[in-house]
């Protein structure tokens, strides 16, 4: 199978993630969509790595995973805090700051 198919898959995943961020209301689900975008990026890196016949892209994917893990820690802590004070994790409810 040509590696280009994996690129198309990665673009589809990235788009699903991007659309999910824009239309979902629950902060956790929005965050999951962002993670999906990062994973789509990993797939693209690994595919390009294979197309170029070198390992750089695979190593980059490891870096991205570590960074994404750190982001989960910070993100869930922040979402937890706002859920405890508001009893809601909907991004529509957080509307005190505007204009």
């Amino acid at each position: 199978m040509s590696p280009a198919h994996y690129l198309v898959l990665s673009m589809i995943l990235f788009t699903i993630g991007g659309v999910g961020v824009l239309i979902r209301r629950n902060a956790i689900v929005v965050f999951m969509c962002i993670e999906l975008m990062l994973n789509a990026t990993n797939l693209a890196f690994v595919t390009f790595s294979r197309m170029h016949g070198e390992l750089d892209g695979q190593v980059i994917a490891f870096f991205v995973m570590v960074v994404a893990a750190a982001e989960v820690v910070v993100g869930l802590a922040i979402i937890m805090t706002i859920f405890r004070s508001r009893r809601s994790s909907s991004v529509d409810d957080a509307n005190l700051l505007k204009y």
């Binding site: 690129l7 991007g18 991205v64 004070s85 005190l96």
Partner: peptide, 27 residues
């Protein structure tokens, strides 16, 4: 807290774009 959530979600969203850009440039 609202500022933190907004900054975090939008910041993570934008860094995903940044990273996909890096992937395409790597390609």
């Amino acid at each position: 807290q609202e500022a933190a959530v907004k900054y975090f979600l939008l910041g993570a969203f934008s860094s995903a774009f940044f990273l996909y850009g890096v992937a395409l440039l790597y390609g």
